[in-house]
Simulated assay, not measured.
Amino acid sequence: MSHSYATKTYIVDTNSIPASFPTLEAFEDFKSSVGAIKHGEALCSVSGDTRGGWAIYATKALLEHGDFPAIAFLGDASSCQYSFEGEYGDITRITIVNPTQQAQVIADFERLISDLIKNPDVAYDIGDLNVYSDGDVEAALERDYVSSSPAFDKNVKGEDGESADYLFVFLRSILEVFKNAKSLGQSVVHVLYI
């Protein structure tokens, strides 16, 4: 049985965030007491699940083809703010992006997608992670579809979170959460569960 990695990206009230999270329990208490902001039909949270961490590793490989420091936390453990090891060796990595940082996050996301549209071969050339067929990347980049749960969305092509369509719906959806947070003047929490 493959290990399933999960991410959760969601908007929270900036004023509710404590100065730090000394323990995972402190973060879990915060998460359960605050919850994600909801704003009409706007996408305010995204859950990502991917077998064996494929989408996380694919994102990391894509980010290595350029200079995207504001979104490095999506694939690089050293770029997250908090990292907690659980009782059974599981790891929770947390990054909180406040409103003043969001413009750069959005700019890096948009530049990454723009670069891939111009040069889709970068996505085809991600080493052992490559599971794409000809045309998969271009078709996935042409879409503008977003989803709160791409892994379980019947409108997302592929399975087990291992397709170009899944990867780019996942990334576009996280970008959409950041855009909505910026418009609301609120913060974004990104959590990676390994």
Rank of each mutant, 00 (worst) to 15 (best):
V46K: 01
D165Q: 07
L175Q: 04
G86L: 00
C44Y: 01
A181P: 00
D29S: 15
I91T: 11
H190F: 14
L43S: 03
Q81M: 11
P150L: 05
D153E: 04
E41S: 15
E85M: 11
A58Y: 00
G127S: 08
R51F: 08
S114T: 09
F168T: 01
E110G: 07
K179H: 08
S149V: 15
E87S: 15
D29A: 14
F30Q: 04
C80T: 15
E142V: 08
H65S: 14
E110H: 07
H190M: 09
V46S: 00
A77T: 08
V156R: 04
H3N: 15
N119I: 09
V34C: 05
A42V: 07
D76L: 09
I71E: 01
S20Y: 07
D128M: 10
Y88C: 10
V169F: 04
V97W: 05
H190D: 13
D160S: 14
K179R: 11
C44L: 01
T14M: 06
D49M: 12
C44V: 07
I11M: 00
F84L: 01
Q104R: 14
N119S: 15
F68W: 03
R93E: 11
V156Q: 03
P120V: 07
K157Q: 10
G66A: 03
T50C: 05
Y88E: 11
Y132P: 02
A151R: 12
I56H: 11
A42Y: 08
A107R: 14
S32I: 12
S173M: 04
R51P: 00
I113E: 08
G75Q: 03
A58D: 00
S20F: 09
S16Y: 02
E64N: 15
P120D: 04
E41F: 15
P99Y: 06
I91V: 13
H3Q: 11
E138P: 02
V122W: 06
L141V: 02
P150M: 05
D128V: 15
L112M: 06
F152E: 11
P150S: 07
G40Y: 03
F168L: 01
T92H: 08
V34N: 10
I17N: 04
L74A: 01
L112E: 01
G86R: 06
D115E: 12
S163H: 01
I117M: 12
E176M: 08
A42P: 02
D160T: 12
